[in-house]
Simulated assay, not measured.
Amino acid sequence: MLKLDRISVRYGATLGVDRISLEVREGELVTLIGANGAGKSTTLRAINGLEPLAGGSIHFDGHLISGATPAAIIDRGISHCPEGRRVFPQLTVRENLEMGAYRRLDRQRVASDMERMFDRFPRLRERAGQVAGTLSGGEQQMLAIARALMSRPRLVMFDEPSLGLAPNIVEQIFGLVLEIRAEGTTVLMVEQNAYAALEMCDRGYLLENGRIVDQGSAAQMLANPEIRRAYLGG
């Protein structure tokens, strides 16, 4: 479904991502793990068109999308739930969800999808008229996930969905990611909690200093002694 072929992203003289290749098959949950600054978030931003490529190509469903605008990439069926949630703080919960569907023309189905999100996230229904900046961290993460789903994506990218959340909320958020995948949406996830990410995923990629240094099934990566020592606490 998604294929990155030797992509590079440059920040001035520095390569943030250095000739990485990966693929995500339809229906999979694939995770990218690695330390801070390894290039994980940059990779997602390159996929959704927010970072221009210095080399390589990105294809989705066999179509070249590198060089396309973020809006065109959303139209192709890729959605992004960004690191730090990035809700629109001065807009209400309902308005944030509407922003997630701003590219859609089927307004009747948008309304029904919003009801579906409120059914899935009852807390958001309770706060539909509340400005998003006043929500708790967990509520904002729920809103960011719901907003990402409002475009009806075929592939959704999650960037650090557990960041800064209490353990009980983290468990809830990971459960939602698994539900989304079980419903047929393909998932590409960046997550610093490497153990939890590998427990959830089908396959994983390990990034270090902008390069992929290991990849494999979840079981293979969990059993790798070097990954266990460096990222899984032994």
Rank of each mutant, 00 (worst) to 15 (best):
M1T: 02
M1D: 00
L4H: 04
R6E: 10
R6Y: 08
V9F: 08
R10M: 07
Y11S: 02
A13V: 07
L15A: 08
V17A: 06
D18N: 15
E23D: 11
V24I: 08
V24W: 01
R25P: 14
E28G: 10
V30S: 00
A35S: 14
A35Y: 05
G37L: 05
L44K: 06
A46R: 10
A46K: 12
A46G: 13
A46E: 15
N48C: 04
L50E: 09
P52G: 15
P52R: 15
P52L: 10
A54W: 00
A54Y: 01
G55Q: 05
H59G: 09
H59T: 11
H59V: 12
F60M: 04
D61L: 03
I65T: 14
S66H: 15
G67D: 15
G67S: 01
A68L: 11
T69W: 10
A71G: 02
A72Q: 10
A72D: 11
I73E: 01
I74A: 08
G77D: 06
I78F: 04
P82E: 15
E83Y: 05
R85D: 03
R86V: 13
V87S: 08
F88Q: 08
P89K: 07
Q90M: 07
V93L: 07
V93H: 06
R94M: 14
E95W: 06
E95Y: 05
L97A: 08
E98I: 13
G100K: 06
A101Q: 08
R104A: 08
D106A: 12
Q108H: 14
Q108L: 12
A111D: 11
S112T: 12
E115R: 14
M117Y: 04
M117I: 09
D119N: 07
D119S: 09
P122T: 13
R123N: 02
R125L: 06
E126Q: 13
E126F: 12
Q130E: 11
Q130M: 14
Q130F: 03
V131R: 08
V131T: 09
T134L: 11
S136Y: 06
S136M: 11
Q140W: 09
Q140M: 09
Q141S: 15
M142L: 12
M142V: 12
M142K: 02
A144T: 06
R147F: 13
R147S: 11
L149S: 06
R152I: 10
P153I: 05
R154D: 02
V156W: 07
D159V: 12
E160W: 02
P161S: 03
S162G: 11
L163N: 03
G164N: 09
L165R: 04
L165D: 07
N168F: 11
N168R: 13
E171F: 06
E171T: 04
G175P: 13
E179L: 05
I180L: 13
I180N: 00
A182S: 15
E183S: 09
T185F: 02
T185G: 00
T185K: 03
T186D: 01
V187E: 00
V187Y: 02
L188I: 03
M189K: 02
Q192K: 07
Y195G: 11
A197L: 15
L198V: 05
E199W: 01
M200T: 15
L206W: 10
L206T: 03
L207M: 13
L207S: 13
N209V: 04
Q215F: 07
G216W: 00
Q220M: 08
Q220T: 03
Q220S: 10
M221V: 03
A223E: 12
A223G: 04
E226S: 14
I227Q: 05
A230V: 14
Y231W: 06
Y231D: 05
G233N: 04
G233H: 09
G234I: 00
